[in-house]
Deep mutational scan, measured.
Amino acid sequence: MISNAKIARINELAAKAKAGVITEEEKAEQQKLRQEYLK
């Protein structure tokens, strides 16, 4: 099960992506976390 901290990070990265200020490194982290969440 995914931790609350990881869910919070997913939401934080989603907000950054929506604002258009996300880095390529953060995009990769976001994809990794989303895949983990979906498992």
Results as ranks from 00 to 15, higher is better:
Met1Phe: 13
Met1Gly: 13
Met1Val: 10
Met1Gln: 12
Met1Thr: 12
Ile2Phe: 12
Ile2Met: 15
Ile2Leu: 12
Ile2Gly: 06
Ile2Ala: 09
Ile2Ser: 08
Ile2Val: 08
Ser3Gln: 10
Ser3Lys: 08
Ser3Trp: 04
Ser3Asp: 09
Ser3Arg: 06
Ser3Met: 08
Ser3Leu: 07
Asn4Asp: 13
Asn4His: 14
Asn4Gln: 14
Asn4Thr: 14
Asn4Phe: 08
Ala5Gly: 08
Ala5Cys: 13
Ala5Asn: 10
Ala5Ile: 10
Ala5Gln: 12
Ala5Tyr: 05
Ala5Glu: 11
Lys6Ser: 08
Lys6Phe: 14
Lys6Met: 15
Lys6His: 11
Lys6Leu: 15
Lys6Asp: 07
Lys6Val: 15
Ile7Gly: 03
Ile7Cys: 15
Ile7Glu: 05
Ile7Lys: 09
Ile7Asp: 02
Ala8Trp: 05
Ala8Phe: 05
Arg9Asn: 00
Arg9Ala: 02
Arg9Tyr: 02
Arg9Trp: 02
Arg9His: 02
Arg9Pro: 00
Arg9Ser: 01
Arg9Lys: 03
Ile10His: 04
Ile10Gln: 03
Ile10Asn: 01
Asn11Cys: 15
Asn11Glu: 11
Asn11Leu: 15
Asn11Ile: 15
Asn11Thr: 10
Glu12Gly: 03
Glu12Asn: 04
Leu13Phe: 02
Leu13Ser: 01
Leu13Tyr: 02
Leu13Arg: 01
Leu13Ala: 01
Leu13Asn: 00
Leu13Val: 00
Ala14Leu: 09
Ala14Tyr: 07
Ala14Val: 07
Ala14Phe: 12
Ala14Glu: 13
Ala14Arg: 13
Ala14Ser: 08
Ala15Asp: 06
Ala15Lys: 10
Ala15Phe: 09
Ala15Asn: 07
Ala15Gly: 05
Ala15Tyr: 06
Ala15Thr: 07
Ala15Ser: 07
Lys16Asp: 00
Lys16Pro: 00
Lys16Tyr: 03
Lys16Glu: 00
Lys16Thr: 01
Lys16Gln: 02
Lys16Gly: 00
Lys16Ala: 04
Ala17Ser: 09
Ala17Asp: 08
Ala17Thr: 06
Ala17Gly: 04
Ala17Val: 04
Ala17His: 06
Ala17Cys: 14
Lys18Ala: 14
Lys18Cys: 12
Lys18Ile: 11
Lys18Met: 13
Lys18Leu: 13
Lys18Val: 10
Lys18Gly: 05
Lys18Trp: 06
Ala19Asn: 11
Ala19Gly: 05
Ala19Ile: 07
Ala19Val: 07
Ala19Pro: 00
Ala19Leu: 12
Ala19Trp: 08
Ala19Thr: 07
Ala19Asp: 06
Ala19Cys: 09
Ala19Arg: 08
Gly20Leu: 03
Gly20Thr: 02
Gly20Ser: 02
Gly20Cys: 07
Gly20Asn: 04
Gly20Arg: 04
Val21Leu: 12
Val21Asp: 08
Val21Gln: 11
Val21Ser: 12
Val21Trp: 08
Val21Ile: 14
Val21Thr: 15
Val21Ala: 07
Val21Lys: 12
Ile22Asp: 02
Ile22Leu: 14
Ile22Arg: 02
Ile22Phe: 02
Ile22Val: 02
Ile22Trp: 03
Ile22Tyr: 02
Thr23Ser: 10
Thr23His: 01
Thr23Gln: 02
Thr23Asp: 03
Thr23Ala: 01
Thr23Pro: 00
Glu24Ala: 10
Glu24Cys: 10
Glu24Asn: 10
Glu25Cys: 05
Glu25Arg: 07
Glu25Asn: 06
Glu25Ser: 09
Glu25Gln: 08
Glu26Ser: 00
Glu26Ala: 00
Glu26Phe: 00
Glu26Leu: 01
Glu26Asp: 02
Lys27Trp: 08
Lys27Asn: 04
Lys27Phe: 07
Lys27Gly: 03
Ala28Ile: 13
Ala28Leu: 13
Ala28Gln: 12
Ala28Lys: 13
Ala28Ser: 09
Ala28Pro: 00
Ala28Phe: 09
Glu29Asn: 01
Glu29Asp: 02
Glu29Thr: 02
Glu29Cys: 03
Glu29Met: 03
Gln30Asp: 04
Gln30Thr: 03
Gln30Val: 11
Gln30His: 15
Gln30Ala: 15
Gln30Tyr: 15
Gln31Val: 11
Lys32Ala: 11
Lys32Phe: 12
Lys32Thr: 09
Lys32Gly: 04
Lys32Val: 11
Lys32Ser: 07
Lys32Ile: 11
Leu33Tyr: 05
Leu33Asp: 00
Leu33Cys: 01
Leu33Glu: 00
Leu33Thr: 01
Leu33Ile: 04
Arg34His: 13
Arg34Ala: 10
Arg34Gly: 04
Arg34Pro: 00
Arg34Leu: 15
Arg34Phe: 14
Arg34Asn: 07
Arg34Ile: 15
Arg34Thr: 12
Gln35Ser: 10
Gln35Val: 07
Gln35Glu: 14
Gln35Thr: 08
Gln35Lys: 12
Gln35Phe: 10
Gln35Gly: 06
Gln35Ile: 13
Gln35Cys: 15
Glu36Leu: 09
Glu36Arg: 06
Glu36Gly: 04
Glu36Ile: 05
Glu36Tyr: 07
Glu36Cys: 15
Glu36Ala: 05
Glu36His: 05
Tyr37Trp: 14
Tyr37Phe: 11
Tyr37Val: 09
Tyr37Glu: 06
Tyr37Ile: 13
Tyr37Pro: 03
Tyr37Met: 12
Tyr37Asn: 06
Tyr37Lys: 04
Tyr37Ser: 06
Leu38Arg: 11
Leu38Pro: 04
Leu38Asn: 12
Leu38Gln: 12
Leu38Met: 13
Leu38Ile: 10
Leu38Glu: 14
Leu38Lys: 10
Lys39Thr: 14
Lys39Ser: 14
Lys39Ala: 15
